[in-house]
Design a binder for these strands. Structure first.
Lengths: 155, 155
DNA sequence: ACCATAACCCAGTAAATTACTTGGTAACCG
DNA sequence: CGGTTACCAAGTAATTTACTGGGTTATGGT
């Protein structure tokens, strides 16, 4: 399972682009400055984002980056996938060969967890990120067993 | 966000204990053998699990470990917490000082993600893990925006 | 009493990954 | 034509993970 500073930086930078969508192009120098991220590191991340078609770059003075799609059309999952490779929680990367060429005892668990995470990150767009009403409210799901330990399953 | 082999090993080992709950004590040698995990590494993990009161150990010949509570009373989150420290996805570990001593642009997002993950892992017990009907079914939530990018919200 | 077995404990290390640096080239604008 | 910015490739420092080694302590069997 991969979810590190790299992915966080990428989402932060993309959120920045989303915020300044009308302003026009945003340079990496600005983003680096605003969020305290190494500019060269950002360049690497944007190389990936560009390859995935999430941003367009323009060179020369006054150049910079902009989102290649509307803010509502880019999910956080898209961004993380681009730089982080995957949010897969299984060891076998989906193939069911974790132990002795068959699924390990916990394979299904990690697969399910991966699906949950993916479902959540896919449901949140850059537009959601930059408008402040907590996305937790947006993505609210019924809580079934918030405290499974201390009580009988009454439902 | 931390969710690595360490946590997976721990959950696998605990699931093994859950499976052999009636049999009595299970030695680390058995677990190591069955799942291809280094025994010394397991010892470290079980030190943490013991400190958290999730398992009881018995020394001497015929000794080993057993769950200190019923299988239904131990969640996957308990296990991962014990060895992995946290499944917190934020950089600031919950404190809102990610950038310039205030919450960064994406703080809420990671906090919400952490809550989602926690909610899921808390809802799955060791009993769920070892009985095969996919826990995905158990923890099934209504899908709101499975593919937000490519279609209108028709629901 | 003794020995084998297992938990228990501490500290070190190899491998992998992440985060970042350095040093360039290519397009664009005035 | 010179400065600015994206774009590209490779190397390195720091951190973390996964694992090893060398012990001590409790217990059960003979």
């Amino acid at each position: 399972m991969r979810l590190t500073t790299k992915g966080r930086y990428a989402v932060t930078a993309m959120a920045d682009l989303a915020l300044h969508y009308e302003t026009g192009l945003v340079s990496l120098a600005e983003i680096a400055e605003r969020h305290g991220i190494s500019q060269s590191y950002l360049e690497q991340l944007f190389a990936s984002l560009r390859r995935r078609g999430l941003v367009d770059g323009t060179r020369g003075p006054g150049g910079g980056y902009r989102l290649s799609k509307p803010r509502e059309a880019i999910s956080v999952a898209d961004v993380i996938d681009a730089v982080d490779e995957s949010v897969d929680a299984t060891r076998c990367r989906g193939k069911r060969n974790c132990h002795d060429n068959e699924g390990c005892l916990t394979h299904d668990l990690w697969e399910d967890l991966s699906n949950q995470i993916r479902r959540f990150l896919t449901s949140v767009t850059l537009a959601d990120v930059i408008e402040k009403p907590r996305v937790d409210v947006i993505a609210k799901w019924p809580e079934r067993n918030p405290e499974p330990v201390r009580r009988e399953a009454s439902a």
